[in-house]
């Protein structure tokens, strides 16, 4: 699976509304007119996406910087 960012511990979170554990599913990231599709921990029911600290400060910060410098 390409572009997949989910750690086992991310899947220990439950969507409070739907009462379901998160699972790896499709998510869309957009920034400055660019769209990236990725597999992230999401609520299988309502689609609530978890962005983990690791992802936010790592890969996402890196891509933000790249897009900002374009």
């Amino acid at each position: 699976m390409k572009n997949s960012y989910a750690n086992p511990e991310d899947l220990r979170w439950k969507c409070h509304k739907c009462d379901m554990f998160l699972s790896v599913g499709p998510a869309t990231l957009t920034y400055m007119g660019n769209t990236i599709n990725a597999q992230l921990p999401v609520c299988p029911q309502c689609g609530f996406v978890l962005v983990s600290e690791e992802l936010a400060l790592g890969k996402i910060a890196e891509v933000e910087q790249l897009l900002e410098d374009k």
Partner: peptide
């Protein structure tokens, strides 16, 4: 902004917070 917390008697205990600028959305089934 993301916040990790637990409700307490008088409010909330904060464990962590971080942020990102990209917008992220999932699909509703």
């Amino acid at each position: 902004f993301w916040v990790e917390y637990i409700p307490s008697d008088d409010g909330f205990t904060i464990y962590n917070a971080y942020s990102h600028r990209m917008s992220v959305s999932g699909k509703e089934v």
